[in-house]
Simulated assay, not measured.
Amino acid sequence: MNTPQKWLRLLIDENCSFQQLLAKLTKAFNCTFTYKNDSGIAKAKLDDFTIIIHDKIDRTFDIVLNPSYILTFMITEDKSPNYHVEKHIQTTLTNHSIIYQHSQTKDHAYPIELPFWQAPNDDLVIKSKGDALTAYCRIWYKPAKYSKFTGIFQFSNVWAMRFERNKQYAYYSHCDGDDFNTCYWIIPESSWLEQLKNERQSHFPEWQHYDRGDYWHYIIQSDSFYVEVIAKQLKISKKQLKGIF
């Protein structure tokens, strides 16, 4: 989990139903989509990437959520260079007459499933030392039943951290409906990180010569707060610990 995955986010404007679009993509990529009724999300996992499709219609209320279908490709980390995979995806869509456009990815957060069930409505315990930050969370092993394990988020090479509450950010859209219990988020194109880089550049023009490596904008959730961290690396694990909570 050293380097976040690569995302390719496209918009599909075709005048067809969600099921018709799924049929087209199934044929195009020779894959099988998993789909829960009324979830509005379908997924298919291939060797090189995972396809995630968000419906533009909420059938529970029969309203249009977005003007387009949102098509996200999560490219497998060890597939390098990624542009070959991207080219294959784009060529496949074009060959099957599926019209797409690149979406505006600025400040869009991509949810990633956690390897454990983070207990909802519980606070994180956060500790920091130097440029390392560690957050601990309680875990459920089944609904409302706490596990003996503690979830651990270990951030290294931390640049900045903030708490956000009671704000409506566009980059939190399309996260709540995903079909896994708990997740964290990554924002590949972050305005906050861009602002930090520009500010640092104005004071230390050559800072990138000695501060090597990529920074990422991560989001984890406490009870009523989003905890946002700019760091180079996030390691997620679980252990049996005493005295944390």
Rank of each mutant, 00 (worst) to 15 (best):
N2A: 13
T3C: 06
Q5Y: 08
W7H: 13
I12V: 15
I12H: 02
E14V: 04
C16K: 06
S17G: 05
S17T: 11
Q19T: 11
Q19A: 14
Q20C: 01
K24T: 02
L25I: 02
A28E: 04
N30H: 13
F33Q: 01
T34E: 14
Y35Q: 07
K36L: 14
N37Y: 10
N37P: 00
D38C: 05
D38R: 07
D38I: 06
G40W: 02
K43Q: 15
T50V: 12
T50D: 06
D55S: 10
I57G: 01
D58Y: 05
F61D: 06
P67I: 09
S68Q: 12
Y69R: 02
F73E: 02
E77M: 05
E77P: 00
E77V: 08
K79F: 04
Y83P: 00
H84Y: 15
K87A: 14
T91K: 13
T91M: 10
S97C: 09
Q101A: 09
T105P: 00
H108F: 15
P111Y: 12
E113K: 09
L114Q: 05
P120E: 12
K127H: 14
K129I: 10
G130M: 07
G130V: 07
R138T: 09
Y141N: 07
S147A: 06
F149H: 13
F149N: 11
G151N: 05
F153L: 08
S156Q: 09
R162W: 09
E164L: 12
R165E: 15
N166I: 03
Q168L: 13
Y171V: 04
Y172A: 07
S173R: 12
H174V: 04
C175G: 10
D176F: 11
N181V: 12
C183D: 11
W185C: 14
W185A: 15
I187Q: 07
S190A: 11
S190P: 03
Q195W: 12
L196E: 06
L196D: 04
L196T: 00
N198G: 03
E199H: 08
D211Y: 04
D214N: 14
D223L: 03
F225T: 07
Y226I: 03
I236C: 06
I236L: 06
S237R: 03
F245S: 06
F245I: 05
